[in-house]
Design a protein around this nucleic acid. Sequence first.
DNA 1: GCCGTTTTCGGCCCGACTGTTTTCAGTCG
Length: 563
Amino acid sequence: MSTNTELAKIFTAMATILEIKGESGFKVNATVKVARVLENLVEDIATVDKITDITGVGKSSATKIQEFIDTGSISSYEELRASIPQGLLEVMRVQGLGPKKVRQLWQEADVVDIASLRNAIDTGKLDNLPRMGKKTIENISESLNFIETTGNRTRIGIALPIAESIRGTLEQVSGVTNISIAGSIRRGKETIGDIDILASTFEPELLAKSFCELEDVATVFSHGETKCSVRLSSGMQVDLRVVDDNKFGSALLYFTGSKEHCVLLREIAISQDKKLNEYGLEPRNISETEEAIYADLGLPYLPPEIREDRGEGECKNTPTLVTTEDIQCDLHCHTLASDGKMTIKELAQEALRRGYHTIAVTDHSQSQPQANGLKPDRMLEHIESIRAVNESMKDITILAGSEVDILPDGSLDYDDDLLAMLDIVVASPHATLTQSTKESTKRLLLAIEHPLVHIIGHPTGRIINKRKGLEPDMPTLISAAKEHKTALEINANSYRLDLRDIHVRATVEAGGMLAINTDAHRAEDFDQLQYGILTGRRGWLTPKNCINCLEHDALQTWLVRNC
DNA sequence: GCCGTTTTCGGCCCGACTGTTTTCAGTCG
């Protein structure tokens, strides 16, 4: 785990412990903020000259961070950790339990972890506690069942289709005038905590009823006039908010978040003697559209994907972020030759159907036997087959390429003579993904510097919620990629989304090039593009930094630039 | 704990819903 990630976890834990101990909410918030800043930091915190120069990190936190860098631990954190049972941090994750109730459970019912909480419920130990009625205990018990069976946040590739389906169903309900997905799905985050739907309607009761009676609903948490919460049988929580039609913009802004972005906007409002909430921006009572609210605050329209309080408040103009319509080619796809399900021709026809001018066939190299990776002699035959199909199809260019393994020592899985015969080389790490930062940086650096490599495919090899992947020194890689004109891939597969958003942002700021590829194995995999686009947009990616947005001839020029 | 174009002290975003109360605390987003 990188130092930044480790420290972010420590500060998050510190904040939770402080909460349980009843410390000031402001102190808790400040600590949470330090954790967030560390999570979003691209460079290794150990390499930062003056830690207090980072906004949100003051003297006290900087001292703790420095202590961790020097010694590998933080004494005040260790003391804090020892002051409460460790299992209480887990208990805080139970829906409906906040710091006050957790403290009460601990001090008055000896609850120290999930198991003892379950036991306390089963033995009736909670029955006589103040403000702990039958319903509250029932709710805790139900949440406990849920946390015991699941846990992770949901990948956007799962959550977005569900959200779209719910939105589509509710849109048909009589009286609905406006309906939108909000929350972290609208912002395109790689994982989603719950689904937020915002609607306005002439018949709020009917909409709420329709929502709570959706086929997949397993539990109804709350069923109010303006807010309903349910859990689906899949475990996902869905919140529906109902607002007046003329307040839709301010409500959409509010419920899209992020929380940090909304705080930023309210602070900007306050500095202008205005007041912003989900009902609008006072004193001029602006609420109909998001655009009007941003305009009254003196800001350009900020797309949902960049609403993370990562500097968007400084924007003078709306950034021109990449869209799916800008994408003109896919440069990382598989066929039957390795582990894909399409022939070369089927792949090209699908690309044509999507309006692409170019498609790259990049099957696996020899070190991927489980994926039917091609030995050099098969690769040579495959190149011939690709050229033949390319000749036979008029309206699309089919590139003969390979997804070549970057071996653990940084060498490539084919020799240079073979690589030189290819139109495009995507070099990707697949195995030995537990290397140290030093080893993985060296490994990827060699591939970036290789003159025959065009793109580094899924640079870290992470699988969301499953595999951490490599943790190379990204600023070093980004700077080398710019220098050697090697593009870094955003693998659009929703399991991967690798590079992740903050590294895309760092690449864009460094002036480097990115690719957004679907890594398609079947025709429907092209639909994953939307997740890569969302990740790109979260990284402030513009079409001019994305090679998939190049016109046909410009792409050809880019491909031969180093050869 | 963090921050500063009135500030190095005194603020720090805000409203809905639930369950338990009988006027509101706690949680959530």
